[in-house]
Amino acid sequence: MSDGFEIQYPGNALGNAAPAPVTPRDVPNRGGDQNPSGAALRQQFADAIERVDVVWGVTNVYVRPDRVLDIVRWLHDDSSQRYDYLSDVTAVEYRDLEAPIEVVWHLRSLPFRRELRLKAQLPKNKPLEIASVWSIYKCADWLERECFDMFGIRFIGHPDLRRILMWEQYREGFPLRKDFPLRGRFSRAEQLRQALAANPEARYSMEELSIADAFEDLPTDMRKRLKGGERTGE
């Protein structure tokens, strides 16, 4: 057999004396063992940490939205933290329409077997913008795109922030926002009308069409729009 990769074991930074992980029992609603990263973050970024609490056994760290990138980079790079795995990026909008939208990151440190939840609150009276962590975790690419698609949060620094689950010409808004009705904004008749009126060319984005040497076969107006820098086919 060939020389493969060296196998990496989670918990390898803990040493052999560390107890084996066990199923958590009777997890309290508030309080309990706090992830040591919470205290470390307070020390490192005293001005950027708003609150640290433990909810149902997982440590929540509320951070200032403008410092997210610094904090996540430190968590990823620092040898005492090593959060090398980003489980999830998502957002929460509360039913109280005054409450800020929260962007939530679920981080995992495989070497230390820790999990941490980072939260940043975005007030609704300002544009919903936050730094992208794509430069640190490649998996943030699609997760942030989905978050943008569903909530309209713009991730600054994301290389390709397009809609992902909804199509690019979708005009009804952001489906997971609380002001978006369950049945959609448009009536069924309007949705049908739009579907039937859609341009079949729109199945390809302009970027994709520019790859093909079918470019020359495109209608003149479309070629003109392509050269003008338009991206989608609508």
């Binding site: 493969g4 990769f5 990496q8 989670p10 918990g11 199923t23 495989l110 077997r113």
Partner: peptide, 18 residues
Amino acid sequence: ASGVAFDVRKDFPYYDYE
């Protein structure tokens, strides 16, 4: 398959998988 031995059942166990 890429050589990272991470399995939620082993590293963050639930239902007494340990």
